[in-house]
């Protein structure tokens, strides 16, 4: 699957990328929400977005809303350092909201298996 990872922390971004590549996906990395928006508008082959929540300028939720407003319907997975449950309640359109922790790799791969 062709996946776009969005994270302003290059280390976390690259770890996420490594996890997904390990699982056999084709992944590219965007540094922030605007970067992601640009890539998504230009590259229609991206099938899924995995984005961090806290980012400067355009955060993960705003990115999600902006995408939907532009009519881009790719599944969107939000990653957060905090408790994911309230976020999912606030934005039920998200495909999933996952906590960034040691179990992330496991949960991401379970999730992606459903697509």
């Amino acid at each position: 699957m062709h996946i776009l990872v969005v994270d302003d922390d290059p280390l976390v971004g690259e770890m996420t990328l490594a996890m997904l590549e390990e699982a056999g996906h084709q992944v590219q990395l965007a540094e922030h929400g605007l970067d992601a928006l640009e890539r998504l508008s230009e590259d229609a082959s991206i099938e899924l977005v995995v984005s961090d929540l806290h980012m400067p300028l355009l955060n993960g939720l705003e990115l999600f809303q902006e995408l939907r407003e532009r009519g881009l319907q790719q599944p969107f997975v939000l990653l957060t350092g905090d408790d994911p449950a309230p976020l999912l309640a606030r934005e039920p359109g998200l495909s999933a909201c996952l906590a960034k922790d040691a179990a992330l790799e496991q949960r991401l791969s379970e999730l992606l298996a459903q697509f």
Binding site: D9, V12, M15, H54, K100, D101, A102
Partner: peptide, 14 residues
């Protein structure tokens, strides 16, 4: 943000 970033990456690294 600096503290948050440390938290984020250290969590992923257990």
């Amino acid at each position: 943000r600096a503290a948050h970033t440390i938290k984020g990456s250290s969590r992923m690294l257990k």
